[in-house]
Computed example of a mutant assay.
Amino acid sequence: MKIDINVGSKALLDIDKRIDNLVKQIELLSYVNPTNIEEEKQKFYASKYLEDPVFKYPEINFDKFKLHRELFTMPLELIEDEEIRDFYETIIYTYSGLIQCIETIGGGKQFYYNSLHCFGTPTEQDVENAKFILHFDDEDINDDAFIPKYRAIEAEAFFRTFSKKYDFTYSIKHSDKLSAIAMVLNNVKTLVLNSNHTYSDNEIAVLTNHEIGVHMVTTMNGLLHPLKIFSHGFPNNEETQEGLAVFAEYMSNNLTVTRLKELAYRVIAVDSLAKGYSFSRTFRLLHNQYDLDREESYYITVRAHRGGGFTKDYLYLTGLKKVYDYYHEGKDLSLLLTGKVTLEYADAIQSLIKKGFAVPSKHITDSYAENSNTNKTVDFILKNLK
Rank of each mutant, 00 (worst) to 15 (best):
D4Q: 12
K10E: 13
L13C: 06
D14F: 09
I15T: 07
N21D: 13
N21S: 12
K24F: 09
L28N: 05
L29E: 14
L29A: 11
S30N: 14
T35F: 06
I37C: 01
E39S: 15
E40K: 11
K43I: 04
F44S: 04
Y45T: 09
S47I: 11
E51R: 15
P53M: 01
F55M: 08
D63Q: 10
D63E: 12
L67Y: 13
R69Q: 13
R69Y: 13
R69S: 14
E83H: 10
D86S: 13
F87I: 02
I91N: 02
I92H: 03
Y95V: 00
Q100S: 14
E103F: 05
G108I: 03
Y112I: 01
H117M: 15
T121M: 15
P122L: 06
E124Q: 15
K131P: 05
K131C: 06
D138V: 08
E139K: 05
I141A: 09
I147P: 01
R151C: 09
A152W: 01
F168A: 03
F168K: 02
T169A: 12
K173H: 07
I181W: 06
I181Q: 11
V184M: 09
V188F: 03
T190K: 07
V192K: 00
T198D: 07
Y199P: 08
S200F: 04
S200E: 03
E203P: 08
A205H: 10
T208L: 02
N209E: 13
H210G: 05
M216Q: 12
V217A: 03
T218A: 05
T218Y: 02
G222I: 08
H225M: 08
K228C: 02
S231L: 10
H232N: 04
G233E: 09
F234P: 06
N236V: 10
N236W: 06
E239L: 10
G243C: 08
A245W: 08
V246Q: 03
Y250S: 08
N253V: 06
R259Q: 14
L260F: 04
Y265C: 12
Y265A: 04
I268E: 03
K275N: 11
S278F: 01
R281W: 00
R281F: 00
H287F: 15
H287E: 14
N288V: 13
Y290F: 15
D291S: 13
R294H: 11
S297A: 15
D313N: 09
Y314H: 11
L315I: 07
D325E: 15
D325Y: 07
Y327V: 05
E329R: 14
G330V: 08
G330F: 10
K331D: 07
L337E: 15
K340W: 02
L343Y: 12
E344N: 11
E344H: 07
D347T: 12
Q350F: 06
I353Q: 06
K354C: 11
K354M: 13
G356A: 07
P360H: 07
H363M: 07
I364S: 03
E370Y: 12
E370F: 12
S372V: 02
S372E: 14
N375Q: 04
K376H: 08
T377V: 14
F380C: 04
K386F: 10
